[in-house]
Amino acid sequence: MRAPADSTNPKFAEYAAPERLVSTQWVADHLDTPGVVVVESDEDVLLYETGHIPGAVKIDWHTELNDPVTRDYVDGAGFAALMGAKGIGRDHTVVIYGDKSNWWAAYALWVFTLFGHSDVRLMDGGRALWQAEGRELTTAKPERPATDYPVIDRDDSRIRAFLPEVLERIGGVPLIDVRSPDEYTGKRTHMPDYPEEGALRGGHIPTARSVPWARAANEDGTFKSAAELRSIYVDDLGLDTDEDVIAYCRIGERSSHTWFVLEHLLGFRGVKNYDGSWTEWGNVVRVPIARGEEPGEARTS
């Protein structure tokens, strides 16, 4: 049932998991392929309503993938109900795209991965590239028959980090802070041009290295080549694909983008996204914080 990988783009072939990315052309060619579901996931909650890829369904990270009460994702029953209503089957090939260089698309893909949905891919370049190429958008609502998606326990152990683990492993595992330089140094507690999201303290987790997410993306929002990515994360940063890595940002959306790069494009074995990120760390009593441009040292006790 799994749709074929996109073998038309030589750039993809160089990645550790080439089947995780598809081109806009591949999507255009597979709009009517049974078993392929295209999903739009955006920062702007109305963008899908202004026009979307024909047949694409919308999944909103804020309002659909999150639990409405606890700061956590939906549980297995909630995910099964959402998938069922969207017409997504457990064996379907899910291709996600979105605005903002696919931040929220990558975040949605990461949540799908927590539920072990095996074939989930990103459309390289996202919504902006599809539009720039003059491809069709429609406001016609897709009609997909509801599916019976199984209830799967969410597995938070492999790719998700919680605060106690991050705190425990400072100095023992490389941390990557993917926020903007001003957020990293502590000059500001939120993204440039973004709302204040209520972090009481600014700075970064001690020992975290600053690698803003955008270094992995080209101007048009597509991912850089495998060689360029290796040069950033392996050569410059000195990371080893066999060792564990934890990435974070402010609520986990930009670090999902970096998680995707490390996990699927470079083939790191143990990458976790700390989705509590700065909106958690910057508010917790007595956790260590480093300010300024230097990563800072692990506290010795």
Binding site: V45, D60, H62, P195
Partner: peptide
């Protein structure tokens, strides 16, 4: 709030 999310609504407050 349910359709848009409280975080996004902060933009209107600004």
């Amino acid at each position: 709030e349910e359709q848009v999310s409280p975080l996004r609504l902060r933009g209107m407050s600004g």
